[in-house]
Amino acid sequence: MGIDLPLIWAIIIAFGLMMYVIMDGFDLGIGILFPFVPDRDDRDTMVNTVAPVWDGNETWLVLGGAALLAAFPLAYSIILSALYFPLFLMLGGLIWRGVAFEFRFKANDSHKPFWDKAFAWGSYVATCSQGLALGGFINGFEVKDAAFSGGVLDWLTPFSLFTGAALVVAYALLGCTWLIMKTEGELQRSMIKLARPATLAVLAIIIIVSIWTPLAHADVANRWFALPNMLFFAPVPALVLATTWAILRLLRGEPHVGPFLFTLFLLFLGYSGLAISLWPNIVPPAISIWEAAGPAESMGFTLVGALLVIPCILAYTAWSYYVFRGKVKPGEGYH
């Protein structure tokens, strides 16, 4: 049998992680945008746009963690212990904002500002620490005898600080364009105004990361700039430029769904770029998915359940987005 289980599991986990980044990205973005929208009714509308779906988004995060342990125990143990602090901050931020999100609905008017602040702060902390973890991951880990051998603050570098801030901007753009799609009137107009600088900032970030990583990592430079790879991968930067141009152009007219879809595509391109840079390593800089893979007995056993349940989760997710399509009007939740 020529089934490449590590490859299948790498695809499942990469897919789950991407679902997480895209879906939790825009609802974290809502929290990031809170300081820019002081009006309480507008904030209610913003929160109502994600209320029906946000909890399901974090499904992918838990599933990703458990699946990584099942399929790649070595990668799970190295990456998670190396990124102890940022992951810990991320979990703290997610718990905090998740509960603040719910209790915001239930609190009376005098308590609401407290939960508003908690929601915004939690979103910033969670996003920033995801970015720090991402930067640390790209930089790679010091490994000796199949275990992380670096220091507890190894992930803290100028590059990871940059990716931490970068992810805040990227999620803000996702949140912005999501709100352009889901709202109308004054709130939508203010989001259109915010979206333009955010789009340009995301483009700048992608360019800076594209220059920074090959300069810092020779392997990455070889992957991208050696022939014939350069020809195969050339469409990625071209598509990034075209997509940015499309978003900016759409923002000039009367935008609706377009900017959000193109932003999703833009982030997908960034994600693919990273995958190209790191492939086939699951623990940069040197451990591949085949070296980190658990026993076939574990991967096969778990695959059965994953193939049965993940399609159900996907179908249910698609259905709930379909049910709650359309604009959310001020002062109106879904009923």
Binding site: L63, A66, A70, P73, I79, L80, L87, A147, G294, A306
Partner: peptide
Amino acid sequence: AYQFGTNWSYFSAFAGSITGPLLTYEVL
């Protein structure tokens, strides 16, 4: 779901092939 890796990495690397699939089935 994360604490096994962050705090008990040698355990995860050693026995994750058994506890990981069981945990994944619980999550699923």
